[in-house]
């Protein structure tokens, strides 16, 4: 049953005061790349931890002229992505799309689309844990101090210990990186494969952590360097020789899938919108 938001609720759900606060915070975030700017963070009609930070950013930006794409794990049709799109549609007249090249705003959880973000687009990340130093320090008060003093020895030591123990850095997704040679930031749980796309890009990247109440940003053409050692360089995920069984691509991020009946392992594009377009291209002579 769909609640009639249009009559009962504000344009873009939030009251204007809330939007202004998010906007002021976002402008500050853009002026200090990678720094987590605190904001009040309203409770949204979706769960805390289910994309409320990204959603608040989207709602502070969106107008009827916008075209919105929402993905979860790269997938437009994932239920949470659909749910977020549905909410935005219920309180705005904005159009929605699965085509990342048509979108003006893209809200994402855990992926960056394969086609690079353009200057006229904004990519909005849902962030569960915005503090990259949390893995070495539990207290917010202390991590804030560490950032202030640019004291990043703890996290470097953690990476070094990883190498001693495992022979390589064991961080999978959400790989920490340095923004504008000043702040270490969490890129949200995108795969390492996506991290280099943040470096000196054409588009603007906004990060919203609703439960942890932080907004941060990577402006265009900003240095983003994954933490690594000279002799242990940063590595992205390996898909050596694997191809997508739907579009045949061998240069995209792939999901590993098991066939229920045969137990056979195969691969499929994680970016479903892009995969769809490639399939269409393959089938048009």
């Amino acid at each position: 049953m769909q609640a009639h938001l249009k009559q009962t609720y504000n344009y873009a759900f939030l009251d204007e005061g809330s939007k202004k606060e998010i906007r002021r915070t976002t402008l500050k975030a853009v002026a200090i790349p990678g720094y987590q700017v605190p904001f009040a963070s309203r409770e949204m009609p979706i769960g805390r931890g289910w994309g409320t930070g990204g959603l608040q950013l989207t709602l502070s930006l969106i107008g009827d002229q916008d075209c919105l794409k929402v993905i979860d794990q790269g997938n437009d049709d994932s239920v949470n992505a659909v749910s977020i799109k549905k909410l935005v549609q219920s309180c705005t007249e904005a159009e929605v799309t699965t085509d990342s090249e048509r979108a003006t705003l893209i809200q994402t959880r855990h992926r960056i689309p394969e086609v690079p973000i353009r200057a006229d687009q904004i990519l909005i990340f849902q962030v569960p844990l915005p503090e990259p130093l949390r893995m070495v320090e539990a207290k917010e008060r202390k991590t804030k101090q560490l950032h202030a003093e640019m004291d990043y020895s703890g996290i470097w030591l953690r990476l070094y210990e990883d190498i001693v123990k495992w022979g390589k850095i064991s961080i999978g997704a959400d790989y920490p990186a340095l923004a504008h040679k000043r702040y270490i930031f969490a890129p949200s749980p995108i795969p390492r494969y996506d991290l280099p796309k943040l470096n000196r890009a054409d588009g603007l990247f906004l990060f919203g952590a609703g439960r942890e109440k932080k907004i941060y940003a990577i402006p265009p053409y900003t240095d983003v360097e994954p933490l690594a050692f000279d002799d242990y360089p940063f590595e992205v995920e390996h898909f050596d020789g694997c191809t997508c069984r739907l579009c045949g691509s061998n240069d995209t991020f792939l999901d590993e899938i098991f066939d229920e009946t045969t137990g056979q392992k195969f691969y499929q594009c994680s970016d479903t919108g892009n995969c769809q377009k490639r399939q269409e291209k393959r089938h048009t002579p």
Binding site: K20, R23, L27, L61, G63, L204, P219
Partner: peptide
């Protein structure tokens, strides 16, 4: 509602670039 939002989007673009 709408004009402040439009202005914000252009301001954000100017701040980001």
């Amino acid at each position: 509602v709408h004009d402040t939002r439009k202005l914000y989007r252009r301001l954000l673009d100017s701040m980001a670039r």
